[in-house]
Design a protein around this nucleic acid. Structure first.
Lengths: 100, 100
DNA sequence: ACAATTCATAACCATTTGGTTATGGTTTTG
DNA sequence: CAAAACCATAACCAAATGGTTATGAATTGT
């Protein structure tokens, strides 16, 4: 998952999906700055990390973010960031909300 | 920072430093599974990401984790996890209205 | 029926990356 | 002082990665 989010282009794709909701590959390609095949490849990588979901509809494929997949990342930070407490409190709230 | 944490070996180094506190390069190398030069290189990468700090003492260099450097990561997750949460909230509202 | 759109895959390429061994500079130890 | 320990850098290599263009399959539009 760290790997999936390490690439800027890929992260930008995920961020757009998280903000704008469901989008087609073509819709994503327009503002992506890379070619359509590359967008498809990046989406595959995000899919392998369970960060997105896709739905075929005729000739187009709609992708959607799965931000709840970020939960393990939060767990990791919680474990290794056991230090500074104020941020940690906020973290607890977020985790609770993501659980339900 | 995502990049710095994307590599398993590097992440393991950071995790050990976070758990066990200050360690020398040699101390880290023993259980690292890679050569000493590689440990040094990985530590440099972590240092560039501000995830660790180092302190020279005679012939040995002590490295220490800086978990507070994870804050931006937490902010990022909070931001995109919050979008997800907002969507759920909106969905709830919509469902309520549909019930009436 | 034919042309155009949408997407994924293949083939290919340059660069980055994670790894190694070799080496040299300091510092500690015998 | 000589030998050993500790670390960083250099030189090098194989594999992974991010990108491209070309192509083909399926769907939609004219």
């Amino acid at each position: 998952m760290f790997r999936a989010l390490a690439d800027p282009t890929r992260r930008a794709l995920f961020e757009r999906l998280a903000r704008e909701g469901e989008l087609t590959v073509h819709g994503l390609t327009v503002h992506a700055g890379v070619s359509q095949p590359m967008v498809s490849k990046h989406l595959s990588a995000l899919k392998r990390a369970k960060l997105v979901r896709h739905r075929r509809d005729g000739r187009e494929t709609h992708y959607e973010a799965r931000p709840e997949a970020l939960a393990p990342l939060l767990d990791w930070i919680e474990y290794y960031g056991t230090f500074w407490q104020n941020k940690l409190d906020r973290l607890g709230e977020i985790l609770e909300r993501m659980d339900k």
